[in-house]
């Protein structure tokens, strides 16, 4: 009976026109593609640049989004805490600076210096990387293992507005699971953020 119900349920999902096709981009379990993007120090970086990394915290972020800004200090802290454990933070600005001048490469340099970023802050020039990953907003985090397999997608924690009121540190819990060779639960979280800025068609 249970099986029959499940089959019917699956069919109803498959045939229901209201259900949208999942967003393109990576899901947990997928192998993330590499990139080769310029950082604020003028050098190019890719995942392959960090051969000894145990994992990667790839965070799509920017200068202009208030949600991204609220997480800047927390990203710096994460890099300090997990960098020495072998997890490399890589920040990527996916916005088109022609739409959002505050997200220009020059302004990224200023921001990285002011905030003391000790990790690459890459400019997604041509906006090819964020769609490949399926990033839709800033901030949007992708945790990868050393083989570039996506382990976690979503928010850093459950309170953007007030770091002191955080109840669940989704990303840190996911890293802890990864460190133990386990699958993070949850593997995906949802949070409000700023849409990625592209020129209108």
């Amino acid at each position: 009976m249970n099986v029959l119900f499940q089959i019917l349920f699956t069919i109803s999902i498959l045939t229901n026109g209201d259900i949208k096709v999942p967003n393109s981009g990576f899901q947990p379990g997928d192998k993330a593609s590499d990139f080769d993007l310029k950082s604020v120090d003028g050098k190019n970086y890719s995942l392959a640049s960090f051969k000894d990394a145990k994992g990667f915290i790839v965070v799509f972020t920017c200068n202009s989004c208030p949600f991204a800004v609220m997480y800047e200090d927390r990203i710096v802290e994460l890099s300090k805490k997990y960098g020495k454990k072998g997890y490399q933070v890589i920040a990527i600005n996916p916005n088109d600076p022609e739409v959002k001048p505050d997200d220009s490469y020059e302004k990224m340099k200023v921001r990285a210096k002011d905030k003391g970023f000790d990790f690459p802050y890459l400019f997604d020039d041509g906006q090819k990387v964020y769609p490949a990953y399926g990033a839709t907003k800033t901030p949007h985090v992708f945790l990868l293992d050393k083989n570039h397999i996506v382990k976690y997608i979503g928010a850093i924690d459950d309170n953007a507005e007030d770091a002191s009121q955080v109840e669940e540190k989704y990303l840190e819990n996911a890293i802890a699971a990864l460190d133990k060779g386990k699958e993070p639960v949850p593997a995906v979280t949802k949070a409000i953020g700023c849409s990625i800025k592209v020129k209108s068609k």
Binding site: I19, K20, P22, N23, T136, K137, H140, A155, K190, A191, I192, G193, C194, S195, I196
Partner: peptide
């Protein structure tokens, strides 16, 4: 909606 990633 299940598809909402959270951007506004």
């Amino acid at each position: 909606d299940a598809s909402w990633s959270g951007s506004i």
